[in-house]
Amino acid sequence: MAKALISDTCESVGLHPEGVGRAVARLEVFGDGQDLAELFAAFGDPTRLRILTALSEGDLCVCDLSAALGMTASAVSHQLRLLRSLRLVRSRREGRVVYYRLDDEHVLNLLAQGEAHVRHHSRGQS
């Protein structure tokens, strides 16, 4: 049996004032979304996602990340600067070595939720 296509538009004209009111109230608290858009843009780059995933296993220095990812230290450092500016990673110095880690559990949770979502849909579930 063929699956019916669902239209992206309403078939009848009419508003649902309660729903619109809730959406407007939430949007007022949300603001313009710029900060969140920048956060998700960082997650939209495969290289940065790989760095974050590697760091989800623990602290690593640029050389460690470079070896794990098969990238130059310069390229890794460039991405780490961006990730630090977005507060997705933080650094600490031990002598002459700088180690990086995920900034907090929210970053780990975002990664875990994204991976779970992708795995869920790759198994053909909805």
Rank of each mutant, 00 (worst) to 15 (best):
L80D: 04
Y99P: 04
L83N: 02
R96Q: 05
L82A: 05
V107E: 00
V118F: 06
E105K: 10
A112L: 12
R81H: 12
L88H: 01
S91M: 08
L110F: 09
H117I: 15
E115N: 09
L82C: 03
N109T: 14
G95L: 02
V97Y: 01
E115L: 13
S77K: 12
L82D: 01
L110E: 01
E115Y: 06
L108M: 10
L108R: 15
L80N: 05
R84G: 06
D104A: 08
S91E: 10
V118C: 03
D104Y: 04
N109M: 10
D104V: 11
S85I: 04
R81P: 06
V89N: 02
R119C: 05
V107P: 00
A112S: 11
N109G: 06
V107A: 00
V107G: 00
R81Y: 08
R90V: 14
R96I: 06
H106L: 09
R101N: 10
D103R: 12
L80Y: 01
V89T: 13
Q113R: 15
Y100W: 10
L110A: 06
L108C: 10
D104N: 14
Q113P: 03
A112Q: 11
L83W: 00
V118W: 05
Y100P: 04
R87A: 14
L82Q: 08
H117V: 15
S77D: 09
L111G: 01
V98C: 09
R84E: 09
R81L: 13
H106I: 12
Y100A: 03
L80R: 07
R92N: 04
V89Q: 01
D103S: 12
H78R: 15
D104P: 09
Q79E: 11
R96L: 05
Q113L: 13
Y100I: 07
L111E: 00
N109K: 12
Y100D: 00
D103V: 08
E105D: 13
G114A: 04
L102T: 08
L86K: 13
S91Q: 11
R101S: 15
L111P: 02
E94I: 09
L102V: 08
V118R: 12
D103M: 10
R93G: 07
R101A: 14
S91T: 14
E94T: 11
L102A: 07
L110R: 05
A116K: 13
R96S: 08
L86F: 03
V107I: 08
L83Q: 01
L108G: 14
A116S: 11
E94W: 05
E94P: 04
L86G: 03
A112K: 13
A112D: 07
N109R: 15
R90Q: 11
N109A: 14
D104L: 06
S77F: 07
Q79P: 07
L111D: 00
G95K: 01
Y100K: 05
E94D: 12
L111R: 01
R81V: 15
R90S: 13
H106C: 07
L102N: 04
